[in-house]
């Protein structure tokens, strides 16, 4: 009995840090958003969604995050499948390549996209030289560039999650399906895809939460009319010193993330059935 008590003591340092620096601030952030003159109220949330600007930012953020997740799934699936099927040694190399972007800061990575997408960037100058366009395309400071930046930023997470489950799919299962008459495509649809769903869930949740909370990338690659939730929080808190509004946005962000994560889980388990 006594031994058990001591074992729990080991949890204490971590617990204290979590309580002090995560749970308490989180609670106070969330709590103040429900505080009104006469007890608890939802007025601040109603105000947020009534405001067409705020609502626009919310919908845009959600859209960008969902789009990023979708593109990451589409790009990540074949890549991960390929990586999971090569020999173990080569696989390690590919994973390093895939993860390489994670090793630099998001600021640097956003800047590199500015070099590529900018007015005098690589794409525009090439197209101009080939006489395919007459004046530079506006590729930067819009939703397009934000999505590109976010996909680039979070694709490695999707690939890692997917490779993690796909490399555990036994080659024999693929051969068994083929011997039962399935073409490569059917093997993918009937065996590989359903067995990859756990990785798909993890990857999608990581990419989605990362995208919806991203600050640097939308800030650097987006323009004045592509504000997202994270920038809105920053503006409210640091420019307007309106901490209440910032807290409301933060709480909405958390709730949305939890809700979408739940939806992704539901959807995936339905796909599995």
């Amino acid at each position: 009995m006594k031994k058990n008590v001591y074992v729990y003591l080991l949890l204490l340092p971590g617990l204290i840090i979590l309580l002090l620096f995560l749970a308490v601030p989180l609670f106070s952030t969330v709590f103040r958003t429900f505080q009104g003159d006469e007890g608890l109220t939802l007025t601040k949330y109603i105000a947020f969604f009534k405001d067409s600007y705020d609502r626009g930012v919310y919908i845009r953020t959600l859209k960008l995050a969902l789009l990023t997740t979708l593109i990451a799934v589409i790009l990540g699936f074949p890549t991960s499948y390929y990586i999971s099927r090569v020999s173990r040694r080569v696989r390690g190399l590919y994973i390093i390549f895939a993860v390489f972007p994670l090793l630099t800061s998001p600021v640097v990575r956003s800047f590199s996209w500015m070099v590529i997408l900018g007015k005098n960037g690589i794409i525009n100058s090439t197209l101009l030289k080939l006489n395919l366009i007459e004046e530079p395309l506006r590729l930067l400071y819009n939703e397009f560039s934000i999505v590109i930046g976010l996909v680039y930023l979070f694709l490695p997470l999707m690939i890692m999650s997917l490779v993690g489950v796909m490399e555990n799919i036994d080659e024999d299962l693929i051969e068994a399906a083929e011997s039962l008459g399935a073409t490569r495509r059917e093997v993918f649809a009937r065996v590989i895809f359903p067995l990859s769903i756990p990785g798909l869930i993890v990857g999608s949740v990581l990419v989605f939460t990362g995208s919806i909370t991203a600050y640097t990338t939308p800030q650097l690659l987006g323009g004045s009319n592509t504000t997202v939730l994270a920038t809105l929080i920053y503006q409210n808190a640091m420019s307007l010193f309106d901490w209440d509004s910032a807290s409301v946005v933060a709480t909405i962000m958390i709730l949305t993330t939890v809700f979408v994560t739940f939806l992704i889980n539901k959807l995936s388990s339905r796909l599995n059935a």
Binding site: D170, D172, L173, E175, A176, A177, E178, S179, L180, G181, A182, T183, E186, R190, V191, P194, L195, N272
Partner: peptide, 28 residues
Amino acid sequence: VHKRNFGFVFQNYALFPHLTVFDNVAFG
């Protein structure tokens, strides 16, 4: 392979883990 119509039984069974016994057998 998929056009040969040969049944293959593997050493480690290679049953589809996401399918029931019925659906495993019904696969082909």
